[in-house]
């Protein structure tokens, strides 16, 4: 039954589910998936980005460093979190925490849910491009396991800035794309109303991305989407994260980093 419902969804339908206001956000995951969470603030350079959250977390007894984009619920929270659009200090905080993870031999788990990195003038002034680029470089050699979960919107470079990892998981109704369907439609079709067509053409759903070899695993969602049964949705994510951590922790770190390089090197070879 759930499967039949799913099969009828178009990529554009899935975009709507991925952006649904009641879709589990980082606060839900911290509350329902973690036994414990110690938030760590600040990039030590400029500020503390409330659009990017991170800290020590315990998931099913496993100690990790957890980092994720933060979308709020309601107007006030969303303004504080800048609607999940992180600034350079968010990416730099993420890197600082990942460095700490490496030092303390803790695996990193990242939760990706952003429309994109913040396109504001101050973000440019403080080096949005450099902050993301530096993370990509840094994460490729980090000597600790990294599990990435695309939970909602994987918006371009702003998503990738915390999404270089050993295992890339994606929720069934999440999307991950180089550009928003609306942006692509307005540039390539010169018509913003062609977003549904762009969503289909860009192949941004979990199924398509699995087929392209970009993601490793699809985490199933309850019928109707993760927001329809948040507890069940979070439980499925927890199970998938723990299973992947168990596998990765057995791999010697040198080999792990080598495999990560091989994984990303192979992307785009056909």
């Amino acid at each position: 039954m759930a499967k039949n419902t799913q099969e009828k969804l178009s990529p554009w339908d899935i975009v709507q589910i991925a952006r649904h206001a009641e879709r589990p956000n980082i606060a839900d995951y911290l509350r329902l998936l973690c036994d414990d969470f110690v938030e760590l603030h600040g990039d030590r350079l400029f500020g503390d980005d409330r659009g990017m959250i991170g800290g020590f977390a315990t998931i099913g007894g496993e100690k990790v460093v957890l980092i994720g984009h933060r979308k709020g619920r309601g107007v006030e929270e969303n303004i504080e979190a800048n609607f999940g659009m992180a600034s350079p200090e968010g990416y730099r905080k993420a890197m600082r925490l990942m460095r700490l993870a490496e030092k303390y031999s803790l695996p990193v788990v990242t939760f990706v849910d952003t429309p994109g990195a913040y396109p504001g003038s101050e973000a440019e002034a403080r080096g949005q491009a450099e902050a993301i680029a530096h993370n990509l470089e840094f994460m490729s050699t980090l000597k600790t396991p990294i599990v990435v979960v695309v939970t909602g919107e994987g918006g371009s470079g702003g998503a990738l800035g915390i999404a270089v990892g050993d295992r890339i998981l994606m929720l069934q109704n999440a999307v991950y794309s180089v550009i928003s369907p609306e942006g692509c439609a307005s540039i390539l079709w010169r018509d913003g109303t062609k977003a549904a067509l762009a969503a289909e053409t860009l192949k941004i759903t979990a199924d398509s991305l699995k087929g392209l070899g970009i993601i490793d695993e699809i985490v199933p969602e309850p019928a109707g989407g993760a927001h329809a049964d948040v507890t069940a949705a979070v439980a499925a994510v927890k199970k998938a994260v723990l299973a992947n951590l168990a596998v990765l922790k057995k791999i010697p770190l040198d080999k792990l980093v080598e495999q990560r390089y091989a994984k990303f090197s192979a992307m785009g070879r056909f």
Partner: peptide
């Protein structure tokens, strides 16, 4: 990025940076 190659284009950012790191 090259929109016509979608997510594969995005991944080239990670791929090239991994090579630079080396």
């Amino acid at each position: 990025a090259r929109m016509h190659e979608g997510i594969v284009s995005l991944m080239q950012m990670a791929k090239t940076c991994a090579a630079i790191a080396r």
